[in-house]
């Protein structure tokens, strides 16, 4: 008596292979989802109450990052400028621009502008801007080519793997102190040579940079 048709062998092989492959594919798919912009928010431009252009203010006008983000050298938080900072210039120029109406309204009503947050770390992560800029990590190393961004977006995935990537060997990214806020800095050809010297000069203890308590306190 013939119980199985000749094709049954193929189906059985495929089924056995599928049972083996399913967990691998499932894990692979989960990883892809975890690292996708859907979860990390990488490269997603957000709609803001005012379409503020870093391209115009950084590349066009040449403003230093610290002109607006004034606490970046002193505090954990780099600082979102108060409305007065915008009005330092816009009380005199573009005073009737429709685009800037929310800024004027914020000043007259004494209500902060509700910007959409672009970079958000999980609450169990401790991060301090001041120590990074003091130790030669430049703005654009993490924030990308801000001077070419019309609307702000998160250039890096901000995953733990991405953080550790630098914490394991920061010398690949370190800059001399005067270049930290340079929006156009590129690693020089001899970075492999000067990087370790910079790390030593900044007293960076690479042996402890990947300790759990460095970021999870």
């Amino acid at each position: 008596m013939q119980l199985f048709r000749p094709g049954a062998n193929t189906i059985a092989t495929v089924m056995i292979a599928a049972i083996g492959a399913a967990p691998v594919l499932a894990v692979g798919l989960s990883y892809e989802v975890m690292l996708s912009p859907y979860v990390t928010n990488q490269n997603i431009s957000r709609n803001q109450p005012v379409p503020f252009s870093h391209e115009h203010h950084v590349s066009g006008l040449g403003l230093d990052c610290r002109y607006c983000h004034a606490s970046v050298e002193k505090a954990r938080f780099a600082g979102i400028p108060p409305t007065e900072t915008c009005m330092t210039c816009h009380s005199q120029i573009w005073t009737n621009a429709l685009m800037l109406a929310p800024v004027r309204e914020s000043l007259s009503k004494n209500q902060p502008i509700a910007w959409e947050r672009v970079h958000r770390l999980p609450d169990y992560v401790y991060f301090d801007h001041s120590v990074h800029v003091a130790k030669g990590v430049g703005c654009t190393t993490c924030h990308g080519d801000v001077g070419r961004m019309r609307l702000m977006r998160q250039a890096a995935p901000l995953t733990m793997q991405w953080c550790l990537d630098c914490h394991r060997s920061p010398e690949r990214f370190l800059r001399p102190r005067e270049a930290v806020f340079d929006p156009n800095w590129q690693a020089p050809k001899n970075q492999a040579e000067i990087g370790p010297k910079l790390a030593a000069g900044y007293h960076i203890n690479t042996g402890h940079l990947t300790d759990c308590t460095i970021c999870h306190r």
Binding site: L61, D64, Y67, Q92, I93
Partner: peptide, 24 residues
């Protein structure tokens, strides 16, 4: 250079970038 040069200019002549864009 960070806070003053946008208006006062890098050499202090009062001809910074923001002045070139219309600031008094």
């Amino acid at each position: 250079d960070i806070y003053c040069s946008p208006c006062h200019g890098f050499s202090g002549h009062g001809d910074g970038m923001i002045v070139q864009r219309g600031f008094p």
